[in-house]
Nucleic acid binder design. Structure first.
Lengths: 340, 340
DNA sequence: ATATTTATAGTAAACGTTTTCGTTACAAAC
DNA sequence: GTTTGTAACGAAAACGTTTACTATAAATAT
């Protein structure tokens, strides 16, 4: 039962050839005869040979492993609905290309309290994808500036490959839709500071301005992403105003759930008394009643492109176009905005 | 900029000692003098030395890396709400103990179409955690029977360490609660075949029987987990019966959303006309109106225990108790069940 | 006939560690 | 003064690969 792991050497002995020949046969080099190759492969199979990633990595400086850095402020990690969709898609296409995925934010607990970069070097990742982090963390900066191929998601660092969701256009479509429904008093429970928030906020103001709608400062309040309680509080503050809004924008679909509760607790109806819109396009939005109006971010596409680009960069560091790719989202009108 | 990676050899040259001494100094062996150790460490730091995981793994047969096998039938993968909570917790405690996490289901796409076991051997995982898979897949069986330390979640294979959510007790509490509210006509949209389903189903029947409640066969219908559409259909079938149930159990909270829609589309109110209960305890249930009655599975604890046990097993293969650990859930009464 | 090419296979070094076993120097013990 | 003990360090093999270089034989060209 306790079979020792079988190595090239075992095969070479069994076949009466040298280790080099076995290696070359298995890797289909041209300087090994056809029958020799076939014989070696048969024996390798019979012996149950598996290559050793560590040895290969040591020799070739290639691990076929990609590091993933995902650490949001709320530590929701894998449970973050938008990002786990992105990650899932990333993972799938990486695996289709023969790469494995290892999380990179685990060095902290290691004895030496490894930095992200140290961890990446230690594991020898061929490349790294960064998303959902504190973009001002110097450790993140160090990693991005290193010589390891890197792709970032939803944030542009220097001149590196980035894949970003089109928050400007998404917010524009959303705001225009709300305008078209006749709303004038529009509030925005915005997320905390980040480039995503920046884009959405700017687009929010710009679009409404184009429709000659003025947004008083007290209509824009802050609540962290995915924080239903904060959204609940924020909603109450908005509805307590002398002149409350008729429509409220939320940082994301999930946070909007908190807003929904606040509204309903006051005996108000959605959308009859108050209209709401979310952002992200989570699966639940379409299962709620009323269906929530939102912008669905193409997380599938974002993850896929990020993986494809990163792998390109890994395989061809010089010849890969460094670009920032913007992935469009799609307005998904529900029934949570009343036509005025 | 293009600094070559610094190795033990570089340090040894800079310090005028042998590589062996450097290695031992860095690993705090007792046969190196104090000042030598300190000096070596300083130089290592200044030079920016990072150990090389591949070389270490090759030499020591230890990777400090754990393989994760997560492949549900619906391919929801990382987006599966219950399992990503478990995984997140698993990941956190593994990382606290110096282990990294790599997904194991990526071998399929690799050139040789690696089996799970091949992949695990290839990467040299110190251990493997298995959850949410087709438990009848022969490849899974092969992996479980291998000599690699393994822990399974929510399924017991042979005599291996398993961590399972207490579906029997959870369903018991849930069913008893519904009985106490006075319901007699209780339907169950059950999940597809699995040990989880088995446990819940058996407990469902048993508990209701103890309360002298008889469940007609047409009250029990099948719908895949997390499938809102199937739950929607199933709900309609149940409500079309001549004698429809007063309370419907769903496979999970998410699927229940489909049921909610079916009920509301008929102009029925929850819980006034129809009562419902879910399972899992997802965050959304508490944000819905009415709040959904459910059983919250302790995903945090399950992931943590699984990781702890696996690491124990890795570090002490002989001395670790092989056991199946049952983690209790908790009934979370909401407002979705009417008191009759 | 000799010279050149081609096909096939082997030799050996290298990747960066860890670890076993020496070796040396010197202090303590008889 | 010889043994014994101990502390500090080094030499070298080993882990499983890959690859540049070399070697041989057969085939082809001259």
């Amino acid at each position: 039962m306790a079979k020792r792991k079988v190595s090239l050497k075992d095969i070479s002995i069994a076949c009466g050839v040298s280790v080099a020949t076995v290696s070359k046969a298995l890797n289909d080099h041209h300087d090994i005869g056809q029958e020799t190759k076939e014989h070696i492969r048969q024996v390798a199979d019979k012996l149950g040979y598996r290559p050793n990633a560590a040895a290969q990595a040591l020799k070739t400086n290639r691990t076929n492993n990609i590091g993933v850095l995902f650490v949001d402020e709320a530590h929701s990690g894998l449970t973050h609905d938008y990002f786990n969709h992105v990650l899932n898609s990333f993972k799938n296409t990486a695996e289709e290309n023969g790469f494995d995925i290892t999380f990179i934010n685990g060095g902290k607990a290691r004895i030496n309290n490894m930095s992200y970069l140290s961890h990446a070097i230690y594991r020898g990742f061929d490349g790294v994808v960064i998303a959902c982090v504190d973009f001002f963390d110097p450790e993140v900066d160090e990693l991005v500036k290193s010589s390891i191929p890197v792709v970032t998601i939803d944030h542009i660092f220097y001149n590196r490959i980035a894949v970003i969701s089109d928050n400007v256009n998404g917010m524009k479509e959303l705001a225009e839709y709300v305008c078209e429904q006749g709303h004038k008093k529009i509030a925005y429970v915005r997320g905390v500071e980040s480039s995503v928030t920046q884009s959405r906020l700017a687009s929010f103001y710009k679009t409404l301005q184009e429709h000659n709608i003025d947004i008083p400062d007290e209509y824009v309040v802050v609540a962290p992403y995915r924080d239903t309680d904060a959204a609940y509080e924020a909603t109450n503050r908005l509805l307590d105003l002398q002149d409350p809004p008729t429509c409220i924008f939320y940082p994301d679909d999930f946070a909007a759930l908190g807003g929904i509760n606040a509204i309903r607790e006051r005996g108000l109806k959605i959308p009859d008394d108050v209209s709401i819109v979310g952002y992200d396009g989570l699966e639940i939005t379409s299962r709620l009643t009323p269906k929530m109006t939102t912008v669905v971010q193409d997380s599938e596409k974002i993850g896929k492109i990020a993986a494809t680009k990163l792998i390109d960069l890994i395989n061809n560091p010089k010849g890969t176009l460094i670009e920032q790719i913007v992935v469009k989202g799609k307005l998904e009108p529900g029934a949570s905005v009343k036509k005025l």
